[in-house]
């Protein structure tokens, strides 16, 4: 029993789950039962994949011990690249492929700069935040290009599906990717290397793990997911605005941290990042339904981030104080 309790208290995503349950109950009561009705859930689930996909990538990268502040800019640049090509008459598949390649290339540059010059990824990706945003505005020429009607297979990405049109197709993409990345992290040797690299770099290196390549791969995957998330948003909105995704990088870090990912690397789960992202959407939506001034959103998000980390630290300390013999 003690061991069982200890195991659960040590789960990094526990604080996030606790907040999610509490807030859901609070909003359900405050909104007079509207919060959990079908129409509102449809709204939450329709928007969730976009933030959550970014959070998945950022969480993975943070577990690997690095940061990416450029995800918000990649979120805008990827669909902008695609839209510019579509406007120039390219078919959809090569256009989106080029967009996603641009995203991966940015992740590659972030990773190479970080590991080759041994500088903090906070700096490299902060630089990339400005660079990628600038390129986005430049290639749009200041005016967002119009997506040619019929150029996008909406049924594959943003159409409502499921019982009672509960969610968009993008939600299915999100679920598939979330499961894929979770399995990658928990069930493969690559995942083992990611955790070791972020957990204790000298040990990972002395055991012969190609830590530089592992980090670069995580940067690329993180950028790719951010780019794909931005592309989903643009397909949902129907127009690529050069300003989308501003501030998203910090929301994604908040999501990862609320979900129990450690800033120092090595600790965290993909599920935690998703729970964090869900919490952010729930607060955003719940405040509106509770008829609270929407400007309180950032206040709530900030407070939640700090409290989640405090609660997590407290839970872990509690877990540690439960004495379980390691020897027989």
């Amino acid at each position: 029993m003690k061991r069982f309790l200890k195991t659960y208290l040590e789960k990094p995503e526990l604080a996030g789950v606790a907040f999610l349950v509490l807030l859901t109950i609070a909003f359900q009561i405050r909104s007079g039962g509207v919060f959990l009705n079908a129409a509102n859930l449809q709204g939450i689930l329709g928007l969730l994949p976009e933030v959550a996909l970014v959070a998945i990538g950022v969480t993975l990268l943070m577990i690997c011990g690095e940061f990416d502040l450029s995800v918000g800019s990649v979120f805008a640049l990827t669909p902008m690249s695609m839209a510019v090509l579509l406007e120039a008459g390219w078919p959809f598949v090569p256009a989106i492929a080029v967009g996603l390649c641009v995203a991966m290339a940015i992740g590659f540059v972030n990773g190479v700069l970080t590991v080759k010059f041994a500088i903090p990824s906070f700096i490299t990706t902060l630089g990339m935040l400005f660079v990628a945003r600038s390129i986005t505005v430049v290639i749009s020429g200041g005016f967002p290009p119009l997506l040619p009607t019929g150029a996008i297979p909406k049924w594959l990405f943003v159409t409502y599906v499921g019982p009672g049109d509960m969610f968009r197709v993008s939600f299915l993409w999100f679920v598939a990717i979330a499961i894929g990345v979770s399995l990658l992290l928990s069930r493969t040797n690559f995942g083992n290397w990611v955790r070791a690299t972020g957990g204790f770099l000298p040990a990972a290196e002395s055991m012969g793990i190609p830590t530089k390549r592992v980090k670069i791969a995580c940067f690329m995957l993180c950028s790719l997911l951010a780019g794909f998330a931005g592309t989903l948003q643009v397909m949902r909105l129907g127009a690529p605005l050069p300003s989308i995704g501003e501030g998203l990088e910090l929301q994604a870090v908040a999501a990862a941290v609320i979900g129990g990912t450690a800033l120092t690397g090595g600790i965290g789960t993909i599920l935690g990042g998703i729970i964090g992202a869900t919490l952010i959407r729930v607060i955003d939506n719940g405040l509106v339904l509770s008829q609270v001034d929407a400007n309180w959103f950032k206040m709530a998000l900030g407070a939640l981030t700090v409290f989640a980390v405090i609660l997590n630290a407290w839970l872990r300390k509690k877990a540690k104080s439960i004495k379980v013999e390691t020897g027989k």
Binding site: N192, W193, R195, G199, M207, I267
Partner: peptide
């Protein structure tokens, strides 16, 4: 060893 990982995973790192 990586302290945040299990014994079994540490045994086989790399």
């Amino acid at each position: 060893m990586v302290p945040t990982m299990s014994i079994a995973r540490n045994m086989f790192i790399g």
